[in-house]
Design a protein around this nucleic acid. Structure first.
Length: 380
DNA sequence: GATCTGCCGACATCCTTTTA
DNA sequence: TAAAAGGATGTCGGCAGATC
């Protein structure tokens, strides 16, 4: 893959608002910066310079688009942050993964953050711009709303006395004069926005992962010629599935592929990460799909994930329905990244049961690489 | 002490209903 | 009829108790 042609300048540090006019926002981002239309626009922009995608590079695009740095460690996020703190077992694994992914993307480990997380950073910039526009638009009515309380000492929007106190207490020895109230308010608003930003990520990662995989499917040579690709379709819009009974909730699937010649159907569940409640959902989803299957023909059920937890990854491989594996294929963005994390040299772990089990699933190819799955679809 | 397991909160979007 | 409000749904990571 060539060096990042996608323009990222200015994403991380948008200019402070001040008196400057509100920034321009793409129309699709005005109300729903994280919505599917804006995600589609951002993906289109991202992939435009590349044209088609080699299956072997699919994981690089996925990580450039969606992987992020854990703010508490500065390392590529591959596990829950509380267990990834320095000195704890997953810190060593996070270091190993960060080292591996930096080398594989051919970037300096210190600069990795500038090369990944494109989708979230772009959508967040749109969100901030849209919020600035909205504030500017509502400023006049806000002024009217506050006017009847003039002189009553009403708090200003964005004021956070506790946070201001922390900031001024720390900086006090270095300040010649206390910052003006407006400057402090602007600072606390920016700190709050920065801290609150991480909570929004999961809203983008979820469907953003599905969109990114769909975008790759459409760009790997051969796949769109051989398969019709559906993103979050209703099940009954796919051939061979019937609508649910009246009054029952309609069923959706994350992604679906239908072979253009044979009509063979592949239902895909995309989950960036897995928890046990989601594992249960896999089984109940499959049972719903099977119940609504109306053509009397087989279909595949595939999991695409970026889960690093060995127990969860192995469990997904081993889940069964009746006398067959639940998932036809378990696809990981890059199993080599998982193995790199497990191979950390600083770990003092005593038990390796889960890791050994997950590693075995990878070596047996039960966990398949995204690239090889895409390649197999192109030739299917 | 490490790993496994399950629950929960924060959030955004999307769809439906209500209000002006 | 358009805008606003309300509610449902679905996403994920964080967290903590249970187990090994």
């Amino acid at each position: 893959m060539s060096d990042q042609p996608f323009e990222l300048d200015g994403i991380s540090n948008p200019a402070p608002e001040g008196d400057s006019p509100p920034p321009a926002v793409a129309p699709v981002a005005v109300d729903r910066a994280f919505g599917q239309d804006n995600r589609a626009r951002l993906l289109e922009e991202y992939f435009a310079p590349y044209g088609t995608v080699e299956p072997g590079n699919a994981w690089k695009h996925t990580y450039r688009l969606l992987l992020w740095l854990d703010r508490t460690t500065g390392l590529a996020h591959c596990y829950e942050s509380d267990k990834s703190q320095a000195g704890r077992p997953w810190y060593a694994r996070s270091l190993a993964f960060h080292d591996w992914v930096s080398a594989s993307l051919d970037v300096d480990p210190r600069d990795l953050g500038e090369h990944i997380d494109v989708l979230f950073r772009r959508a967040s910039a749109d969100l901030a711009a849209a919020a600035a526009n909205r504030r500017a638009r509502l400023a006049e009515s806000a002024r009217k709303q506050r006017s009847i309380y003039l002189g009553r000492g009403m708090p200003e929007p964005g004021e956070d006395p506790e946070l201001e106190e922390i900031v001024t207490a720390v900086l006090d020895p270095y300040l010649v004069t206390p910052p003006p109230a407006e400057v402090m308010r602007n600072l606390t608003e920016r700190i709050q926005a920065h801290v609150g930003q991480e909570n929004k990520r999961k809203n983008l990662v979820g469907e953003g992962f599905e969109d990114a995989i769909a975008a790759l499917l459409r760009r790997v040579t051969g796949v769109p010629d051989v398969h019709d690709i559906y993103v979050r379709p209703s099940l009954h819009d796919l051939p061979g599935f019937r609508p649910p009974r009246a009054g029952s909730k309609k069923r959706q699937v994350d992604l679906a592929l239908v072979h253009r010649v044979s009509g063979y159907r592949t239902l895909v569940s995309c989950k960036w990460s897995v928890r046990s409640d989601r594992e249960e959902q896999f089984a109940s989803d499959f049972s719903d799909y099977a119940e609504l299957e109306d053509a009397g023909k087989d279909f595949s059920y595939v999991l695409v994930t970026n889960e690093f937890d060995p127990a969860r990854l192995a469990a997904a491989c081993d889940m069964r329905r009746q006398n067959a594996p639940l998932f036809t294929d378990v696809v990981h963005v890059n199993p080599q990244g998982v193995l790199a994390a497990y191979s950390d040299r600083g770990s003092n772990a005593k038990t390796e049961g889960g890791q050994a089990r997950a590693s075995r699933r990878i070596s047996e190819k039960r966990v398949q690489a995204l690239g090889s799955w895409l390649g197999s679809l192109a030739t299917a």
